[in-house]
């Protein structure tokens, strides 16, 4: 669309406009920065809550303990009863021997336990099922089915830690973050759009004569529009840089601690939404969309070409 000289002149004019209206530019950049900060905070809160829920969801399961002295075929018959259950995702079976071996392996460095194990004449550990369901809400029902009287001769204990209240609470928080967050983001995006719209409109008025002359001497339409777009893109770049500087410590200092709190097995969230550069890119994308949208609106309304 442009040769390099025109592109250079457009960008230069955009910078000059940005600089000449420095107070207006600062205001537009600030509002954009605030919008980005709110966006990022909500985005991170959403991602952390979401991540917590999925972490906790993964820890939910039903442990079914069998009585000792059962034959493997009897246990497998019970498993068959549940294999056809479409709500169950997985039943993993641990035989008492496997449980014993695992226990031994886990405590091999503990001479006291090793010694007492060696003194045992029979395996005290029961065979177990570890049951995972597809849906969180199906766990109580499935636990209930294992407690059916027809299994009471075989099953000694059904252990189900009901994490649902925690998950429900997190779910509510998530819903709140989403509703409240979307509302807040819309309000601030509108404010940012209005402020940028007004700033660009003022620039258009300031440069009315220049624009008229440009048109008369045959400047192309995009040559005339270009500087206004450049100016608003500068707001996005600067606001992304400022918001990025504010969030960098959050990523290096705060997030690792939060990750450790949510899931002690990890020291950092292993999802790319928690990557600083990913967030920076998102901020840039959001601010560019807002800036370009409001500038095109102002150009359409006030720049007569």
């Amino acid at each position: 669309m442009f040769d390099s000289i025109s592109a250079f002149r457009i960008i230069k004019t955009g910078f000059v406009n940005f600089w000449r209206n420095s107070w207006l530019s600062a205001a537009a950049t600030m509002v954009m920065t605030i919008t980005l900060v709110i966006f990022s905070v909500l985005f991170l809160m959403f991602a952390i809550t979401n991540y917590s829920i999925s972490t906790i969801k993964n820890t939910v399961d039903i442990s079914v303990y069998f009585k000792t002295g059962l034959g493997e075929d009897q246990i497998m018959n019970i498993k068959k009863d549940f294999d056809s259950n479409s709500k169950i995702k997985e039943i993993s079976y641990t035989s008492s021997q496997q449980a014993f071996d695992q226990f031994k392996e886990a405590h091999k460095n503990d001479p006291l336990i090793t010694q007492s194990l060696n003194e045992l004449t029979e395996n005290p550990l029961p065979a177990t099922f570890n049951v995972k369901a597809y849906q969180l809400d199906d766990y109580p029902g499935i636990a209930q089915q294992f407690q059916d009287p027809k299994y009471q001769d075989y099953i000694s204990k059904v252990n189900f830690e009901d994490n649902r209240p925690v998950i429900e609470r997190l779910g509510k928080i998530l819903k709140f973050i989403v509703t409240f967050g979307i509302g807040l983001i819309i309000v601030f995006s509108l404010i940012a759009i209005l402020v940028i719209f007004n700033t660009i409109t003022l620039t258009i008025y300031n440069r009315k004569e220049e624009v008229e002359i440009m048109r008369l001497v045959g400047a192309t339409n995009w040559y005339i529009r270009g500087p206004f777009l450049t100016e608003s893109l500068l707001y996005s770049v600067f606001s992304t840089i400022i918001a990025g500087l504010l969030f960098y410590p959050v990523f290096t200092k705060v997030l690792p601690k939060v990750a450790l709190f949510v899931n002690p097995q990890v020291t950092l969230f292993n999802q790319n939404v928690f990557n600083f550069w990913y967030l920076l890119f998102m901020m840039l994308a959001v601010s560019v969309i807002l800036a370009v949208f409001s500038t095109l609106l102002a150009i359409r309304k006030y720049l007569k070409i």
Partner: peptide, 24 residues
């Protein structure tokens, strides 16, 4: 006339050439 008040005679003429992409 529609001249740009903050530009000199030279700059006013040069402006017309600049905006149309002429080389310096």
């Amino acid at each position: 006339m529609k001249l740009l008040p903050r530009r000199t005679a030279y700059e006013n003429v040069a402006f017309a050439m600049e905006v149309c992409g002429h080389r310096k």
